[in-house]
Amino acid sequence: MTNVETGRPSVGDCVVRKSFPPITRHLLALYCGASGDHNPIHVDIDFAKKAGFPDVFAHGMLAMAYLGQALTDGVKASLVLSFSTRFASITPVGAKLTCEGHVTEFLQHAGRECMKLALSAKDEAGDVKLAGEAIVALN
């Protein structure tokens, strides 16, 4: 719950939450051009199969772009001091990601009062695709 006097969230609060449409092959092609990441493994099924995968799969950075979008919808972008993630598992075509962020602690960082968020991107089955964190200044 946000503290009424300080306007601050509390540890455990969900301050980031956004769901995204299913990842299509078309989206992967667009993201390939938009991001400059032309690795054929994300758009060329022949290449993906030769590399030992059953199909193309999403760029990790597309999922992270969604996580970042959810993050800066939930908190002011100008207050985000760091943002990181581990790519826990491959995001397949068709996955519907939901991104969330919960407050885990309050801390000092670079001389500023901050909160740390635990971030995740999960698919519709609840499988964790991205597990990350962000440090966000309080003002």
């Binding site: 667009l30 993201y31 992270m64 970042g68 979008q69 100008s78």
Partner: peptide
């Protein structure tokens, strides 16, 4: 491509209100 509609990336005035001196770019 990523369906990003946050005004700080589209509208210089909205970016200024958040303290940026120009249009911001998304975190990644």
């Amino acid at each position: 491509t990523i369906g990003e509609c946050n005004p700080i990336y589209h509208d210089p005035e909205a970016a200024r209100k958040e303290g940026y001196s120009g249009l911001a770019v998304p975190p990644t």
